[in-house]
Design a protein around this nucleic acid. Sequence first.
RNA 1: UCCCCAGUAGCUCAGUUGGCAGAGCAGAUGGCUGUUAACCAUCGGGUCCGCGGUUCGAGUCCGUGCUGGGGAGCCA
Length: 460
Amino acid sequence: MKRIKILHLSDADAPMDKVLVKGWVRTRRDSKGFSFIEVNDGSCLKNIQVIADENLSNYEEINKISTGSAVSIEGKLVASKGGGQKWEIQAEGVDIISLAPESYPLQKKRHTDEFLRTIAHLRPRTNKYGAAFRIRSELSYAIHRFFRDRGFRYIHTPIITGSDCEGAGDMFRVTTLNMDHVPVADGKADYAEDFFGKEAKLTVSGQLEAEMFALALGDVYTFGPTFRAENSNTRRHAAEFWMVEPEMAFCDLDGNMDLGEELIKELLRFVMKECKSDIELFARFVDKQLLGILENIVASDFVRIPYTAAVEILSESNKKFEFPVKYGSDLQSEHEWYLTEEHFNRPVIVYNYPKEIKPFYMRVNDDDATVGAMDVLVPSIGEIIGGSQREERYDILEGRMKETGLPKEEYWWYLESREFGSVPHSGFGLGFERLMMLVTGINNIRDVIPFPRTPKNIEF
RNA sequence: UCCCCAGUAGCUCAGUUGGCAGAGCAGAUGGCUGUUAACCAUCGGGUCCGCGGUUCGAGUCCGUGCUGGGGAGCCA
């Protein structure tokens, strides 16, 4: 007999004569002559209540079933005699697959996120984390669907890269050298002996490679892990995280902003519709204002202001900032928070930043002072998208590389794309975990990724 | 890396001015009951984060280290 998932039982519209359910026991309560067993199989938030009568041949064993134990239940799906649930299973057989000892760390009552992080291998068995990771899966699907509907192609860009510096942050080294006996040449590690014959790192972005495919397939995107070896200790940063990076040929900065806004709104709409009961859990127990926040984002036009206008708003705000607002320096977190949470109270796209504070690949504007960069800021998360129109003019790109001290030889292939049929193109990076935080109201990135990697933390 | 806060039972926490280590939940045992964070009774459970210091006496005060959290920087 094939097992049926609890998801399909809870929305059943008629009783069933014979069902087989397998899952983990959340709690068990005794009554006179029978026992209530709450079983969850991870297919949905809901448990199914099982009635195990004392006439069952192994009732003595059934009475030893503890929280966390795995069971297989055969019986009838019948209308529940008690309140609180529509259906329950009148068990005809309860097989104990394995008993969890009393040391099982998950209890019926609420645990703190900090404690659950120390048992990341068990936390998906809780209501909250089960819901979060079901949503994570649905959100991934929604991303692929969004791009496919619009004719984008999915590109697998490399995880290991030979580019010494991709412009963002410190990188993790990839090597097969024996770290206890590193071969030396001229007083330095000799990478000629290494696997690739030169230094290799984990990627910090698939952008440069994705650009090559945008200039061939038109509209493309990547969706995969990226790595930053920054010693960041905040609730919004992880050393390993997932990023969505669309890249579009024949697209300027306006088109880029349009896509970013549309993407965020569409993903929120999708999740509110397709993950309704899981989202409701977060709206009830994690952030009471969650639904209002999500609806507000879906309904509002994102504010779009140039960097100079943002600086003006901040200067005229009469708000005491720890760091002074000044043209030419990057916006501090407190400035971004002010714009998106206080001044506008909705998502804000800041664009056209001074070129001195942005990387070499961003397109220089006609004023020769700013570049076509854009950051999407949302309340409670901060920067969720960072992107730009790319510099497609060979000479200017080459000049910017010289200015920022990048070795031209390393990027010969990137420059060549500007030599052969170069076209205006744009793209951005969306932080997938930050999107998860936005959607669920969970305020720590370590709680929206299955096994988080942060400085000094690589357990599991 | 810098600034701030915290660390007490398996979990969540209380612990007054420096004076015998506590509660709820969880666990075990018994009872009651179509229960649903079940209920009632009994019992077991501690390196008060580590190290050093002050003191007649430290969970409490001081120094230091570790771990966790929040903020900043870096960014998605």
